[in-house]
Measured scan of single mutants.
Amino acid sequence: LVRYRTISKIPQITLNFVDLKGDPFLASPTSDREIIAPKIKERTHNVTEKVTQVLSLGADVLPEYKLQAPRIHRWTILHYSPFKAVWDWLILLLVIYTAVFTPYSAAFLLKETEEGPPATECGYACQPLAVVDLIVDIMFIVDILINFRTTYVNANEEVVSHPGRIAVHYFKGWFLIDMVAAIPFDLLIFGSGSEELIGLLKTARLLRLVRVARKLDRYSEYGAAVLFLLMCTFALIAHWLACIWYAIGNMEQPHMDSRIGWLHNLGDQIGKPYNSSGLGGPSIKDKYVTALYFTFSSLTSVGFGNVSPNTNSEKIFSICVMLIGSLMYASIFGNVSAIIQRLYSGTARYHTQMLRVREFIRFHQIPNPLRQRLEEYFQHAWSYTNGIDMNAVLKGFPECLQADICLHLNRSLLQHCKPFRGATKGCLRALAMKFKTTHAPPGDTLVHAGDLLTALYFISRGSIEILRGDVVVAILGKNDIFGEPLNLYARPGKSNGDVRALTYCDLHKIHR
């Protein structure tokens, strides 16, 4: 019993810090008490220290592992850092350059016999395009090294910054494609005289377009951006097909006994025919423009016929181009109408809503002055909100995010209106959640004399007048207030005048 009563005193000691020596009952000389009392004092002292730490809000209350900052290894790049964003855009520009100039170089340097010394005699450094290609190869190699040090988000939505895990993730992902696209074939085969082989191998750079397509997928929600990307894709495919079309004609031209190829026909049409040795002929500019003209006309199913396939190889390629053109029509131009419709969806919704308003007016036989006010209010409210119901949009977000959005939407009023000066951010967040926005066209009466005042109004834009009878008592403008002081009276009061809008007004109100 003594032991039980001794232990039962522990909660009292913990909360009230009572010393055991003052209790005459606990001072009985028993061996059990002498053993338990020192333990009680020690526990009391420890609990006292913990309570003191909690009340003082000291940093040592938290466990040590929670006080440590997340460790980022040296030379690790955050995937959302500004440097990584700028670097990704730079790589994107280099990939676009590669997609345009690599097929052009591979096709127009394929057994090209233009006048001038061969590239091997001039030297590697004197070729501007080769120098640019070398810079692109170096940048792609540097990009691989950067990807080995860039964080990523795993399946659990955690940012991984450990170098080993980053390397394994990159090896399992895009490393092989990036490595093949970054191989400097110019340096590996330079001086061997195989410019045709170098041009063909350099087309491996186009593998990076797969990554670019995935990154550009984030802009699919913007109709104008999608339309622009589709047109660029169409032009890029036409450019690639033009390079292939020229390569076919250029390879067949020296081996044909009869002059029936499209390059021969082009030379005869523009007065620059090929001679018996295969030299001469149109310039590279004429060849490229004509090839691009043929691919565009074939892809769009126009086909004027002034550039036509004559050999079997050219006919087979033309059939493939027609098939590609039909697929592009289905996948690209078939979506253009939907994209344009999405661009004008706001206008369509406006006309639909206006039609419903006019049908309501016609069905209920609203008189002319009231009908005009109804239409003007709808037009003004639509121009202010673009038909978007803010309350319906915010309803799907958590309250903390709703408060931040409301604070942002009402920031101008909260910053410049005098009653809100000096208020804490928590108070402003709470008030912003209570605001209701209303609009009024010129001549609209917001409050009639004798109406119950259940709200306090803040003028965000425009001006109003307060009338008693036919006498203008006051004219209020931006950041002015009218209405009933909230919670100042037990019952809502009545208006002693009319409140009429002089201009288009936007008002925020808080109800009782």
Rank of each mutant, 00 (worst) to 15 (best):
Arg205Pro: 03
Leu188Met: 12
Ser345Cys: 03
Ala403Asp: 01
Ser298Glu: 01
Asn265Asp: 12
Val100Ala: 01
Cys243Asp: 01
Pro398Gly: 03
Val142Gly: 05
Val160Pro: 01
Val226Phe: 05
Thr385His: 15
Thr445Ile: 08
Lys285Pro: 01
Met179Gln: 01
Phe228Arg: 01
Met256Lys: 15
Asn265Val: 15
Lys418Thr: 05
Gly193Pro: 12
Ser276Arg: 04
Glu314Ser: 01
Leu207Asn: 04
Asp186Cys: 11
Leu90His: 03
Phe190Glu: 12
Tyr219Glu: 04
Ala106Lys: 01
Tyr104Ser: 01
Lys272Asn: 01
Ala99Thr: 01
Pro309Asp: 01
Leu230Arg: 01
Leu110His: 07
Ala69Tyr: 04
Ala224Asn: 05
Arg362Val: 03
Ile189Gly: 13
Gly199Pro: 04
Ile361Ala: 11
Tyr80Asp: 05
Val226His: 03
Arg165Val: 07
Ile144Glu: 01
Leu197Phe: 05
Ile72Gln: 14
Glu64Ala: 07
Leu446Pro: 02
Gly281Val: 01
Ser277Leu: 05
Met390Trp: 04
Ser276Asp: 14
Met231Arg: 01
His408Asn: 03
Gln372Leu: 09
Tyr97Asn: 01
Phe420Asn: 01
Ala449Ser: 14
Ser192Asp: 09
Phe296Tyr: 04
Phe397Trp: 08
Leu401Tyr: 08
Asn386Asp: 04
Ile248Gly: 01
Ala440Ser: 13
Gly199Thr: 11
Leu188Cys: 10
Ile91Ser: 01
Ser220Ala: 11
Gly334Thr: 03
Leu428Val: 07
Gly173Ser: 13
Val321Gln: 06
Thr437His: 11
Lys418Gly: 09
Gly116Met: 08
Tyr222Asn: 01
Pro103Asp: 01
Val86Asp: 01
Val159Gln: 03
Asn275Gln: 03
Leu92Lys: 03
Leu92Thr: 01
Leu370Trp: 01
Val142Thr: 05
Arg208His: 11
Leu401Asn: 01
Phe171Asn: 01
Met139Cys: 04
Phe101Tyr: 14
Thr385Gly: 07
Leu263Asn: 01
Pro419Lys: 02
Glu252Met: 01
Pro128Lys: 05
Leu292Ile: 05
Ile96Cys: 07
Gln415Glu: 12
Gly281Pro: 03
Arg259Phe: 01
Ala181Gly: 14
